[in-house]
Structures are given as structure tokens and as C-alpha cells.
């Protein structure tokens, strides 16, 4: 009977070695799971939380920001207003491609500093062409360049948003005022929305955002510019923490040329309505049927 018992002993040895090797291989997860609380794990979808529960979640996030980033911040859950439907228009004749809006977005929305992320990309387009293939998003010269015009692109807040349709867990949806929002605490990070978006509007947090404490914007919205967790998708929210309180989006305030016009589509007296009624406007990739809320026009 020595044969079988030796076999058993070898098996036990192999099993033990295998198990300890596995534990060793999974070691990096220890640090990762330290940041993960049970409350966080069990947290329900934004739309299923009561005001009180959101208050608790916000409190936890503020505390976390204090601990991890060393900054006192205020996170508010700013709700949409009745009778407001947001829209945005941009004059391609006026835009000079200076990318001040890109920078303002970066600062306002607490983007990762290392990747210099922003929700806005500006394409330098060739005069006389609307072919994006001839565009260039990484130009590094004085603007405006001769024979070029500039096409800033950010989330178009589509009424028929492909990103919302494809999300398997409803982590992204259309708010009553037209803004496409993301619940950063619900997103599973599959990035299907990123594949579905025809406007390159979505960004993924490939790592934990890095921002020095003194550069953090402490005025934060729960569905907008609070510091995003690692592994989830984010996007432009028309700065809803500002715009839902009557302020303008950061990109508009930063624009030195006045190319940007933001407002309430339902307000007949708004500048936005005047533009939509009096200018020749168009939307990007209209043929895809996404019905954007972002309009472009030329001042002729």
C-alpha cells in the first residue's frame, strides 16, 4: 500500500503548493479591496436611492476625498429644473481653435492631471471640407492657422443616445433636462458606451485620477465633476452642477471669442433660441439618427 499513500501525499503537497501560489498571485488584490467598503459594494443605483441615502453616500464620498486627496470638498446632488431643456450651440466661424474650453473643462471637472484629460476635443479642419479624416486633433501651432477652421466636439447629449441604449446596467441615462448622466458608483466599466458613441465623448478611468489637493475644484456635483473612481466611464454633463443653478458651463465662460451659446431650449427669449431660429444650423453625423442637443452654425 505504499504506492497509493505516496500518491496521496504528493497530491496533498501539490494542492498546498497550488493554493499558496494562487494566494501569492492574488496578493495585489489586498491593497485594492482595502478601499472597498461593504456600504460601497451594496450601494444601489442612483435612481433607487432616497434623498437621505444619497446624503449618506455623499458624506462618504466627501470623507474619502479628504482622506485620499487631502481636500475638503462639497458634493451636491443638484436636480434638474422644471421647464428646462438644455441645448448648446457653437459658431464655427468664430471659434479660433485656442482650446481654452478644453483647458477649462480639465480644471472644472477634476480631470486626471497626468493624462491631461478633457471632455472636449478640437479638430482642426481643412477649409472647404467637412471630412473629419482630413481633420487633426493634435495640432501644436499658433491658431488660427491659414486655411483651417476649428471644430470642438464634446458630448452631444443626444436625445436618441446610443450610449444609453447599449449600457447593460442602466448606469447611464437621459436626465429630464436632456443631459446624459452617468452613475459613477453603478458603472461596471465594460466600455460598451465608449464603443457606441459616435462622437468620442466618453472617457474611461484607466487608473485612479491624480490631482494635487490645491488644484481640486471643491464645488462638486454628484452626477458631474466629483472625482471619479477608477474603472468607470465618465463624460461631459454640460457642467450640470453649474448650469442647473443658472450658471454657464465652464467651457463657455472660458471661450475668448464668444463662439459658444448655451441655454434653455424652452425659453423663447434665450440667445440659444435666437441662434437656432436665425442661423443655419446643423448637427454632427445627423445621418446616424442620434438627435444631438449640440448645434453648430456658421455666421455668414
Amino acid at each position: 500500500m505504499t504506492q497509493p499513500s505516496r500518491r496521496v501525499a504528493l497530491k496533498v503537497l501539490g494542492g498546498t503548493l497550488g493554493a499558496s501560489a494562487f494566494a501569492h498571485a492574488m496578493e495585489p488584490l489586498r491593497a485594492w479591496s482595502k478601499d472597498l467598503s461593504l456600504d460601497q459594494f451594496l450601494q444601489r443605483h442612483y435612481k433607487e436611492l432616497t434623498r437621505d441615502e444619497i446624503g449618506e453616500v455623499i458624506h462618504r464620498h466627501e470623507q474619502q476625498t479628504r482622506e485620499e486627496y487631502g481636500r475638503e470638498v462639497t458634493i451636491r446632488d443638484v436636480r434638474p429644473q422644471e421647464g428646462v431643456q438644455f441645448g448648446y450651440a457653437l459658431s464655427l466661424s468664430v471659434c479660433i481653435g485656442c482650446r481654452k474650453c478644453v483647458e477649462a473643462c480639465h480644471v472644472e471637472n477634476n480631470h486626471d492631471r497626468r493624462t491631461n484629460n478633457s471632455y472636449i476635443r478640437v479638430l482642426e479642419m481643412e477649409q472647404g471640407s467637412f471630412d473629419m479624416e482630413k481633420g487633426n486633433a493634435t495640432y501644436e501651432h499658433a491658431v488660427p492657422a491659414k486655411g483651417k477652421y476649428y471644430l470642438p466636439v464634446q458630448c452631444q447629449q443626444c436625445d436618441n443616445a446610443p450610449c444609453v441604449s447599449v449600457c447593460p446596467v442602466q448606469a447611464t441615462w437621459k436626465e429630464p433636462d436632456g443631459i446624459v448622466a452617468v452613475d459613477y458608483d453603478w458603472c461596471i466599466g465594460c466600455r460598451y458606451c465608449e464603443a457606441a458613441c459616435p462622437y468620442h465623448a466618453r472617457r474611461f478611468n484607466w487608473t485612479k485620477p491624480e490631482i494635487p489637493a490645491d488644484e481640486i475644484n471643491p464645488d462638486q456635483g454628484y452626477l458631474s465633476n466629483r472625482i471619479r473612481p477608477q474603472g468607470v466611464v465618465e463624460k461631459c454633463t454640460f457642467c450640470l452642477h453649474r448650469t442647473r443653478e443658472g450658471r454657464m458651463p465652464a467651457c463657455l465662460e472660458a471661450c475668448p471669442t464668444g463662439a459658444r451659446v448655451f441655454g434653455n431650449l424652452l425659453d423663447p427669449g434665450s440667445e440659444l433660441r435666437w441662434v437656432l431660429e436665425n442661423k443655419r444650423i446643423f448637427v454632427l453625423k445627423e445621418e446616424l439618427g442620434t438627435r444631438p442637443r449640440f448645434f453648430y452654425f456658421f455666421d455668414v
Binding site: L36, F41, H45, S165, V166, C167, P168, V169, Q170, A171, W186, C187, I188, G189, C190, R191, Y192, F204, N205, P229, Q230, G231, V232, V233
Partner: peptide, 26 residues
């Protein structure tokens, strides 16, 4: 491929929020 595999339960029908039948992923 998931950024947040710890949130796998969000995709369980009945327990999470299963975006069926709209999302092809569901």
C-alpha cells in the same frame, strides 16, 4: 475586460438593473 468586476451583481437580472431588451449586451 471589466473595469469594475466587483460590481458584477449590477448585471444580474432581478437583482441589479438589467437593461433588457434594449442593450445587446444583456
Amino acid at each position: 475586460d471589466m473595469g469594475r468586476p466587483d460590481r458584477f451583481w449590477h448585471i444580474l437580472p432581478g437583482i441589479g438593473r438589467f437593461n433588457w431588451p434594449i442593450s445587446m449586451l444583456t
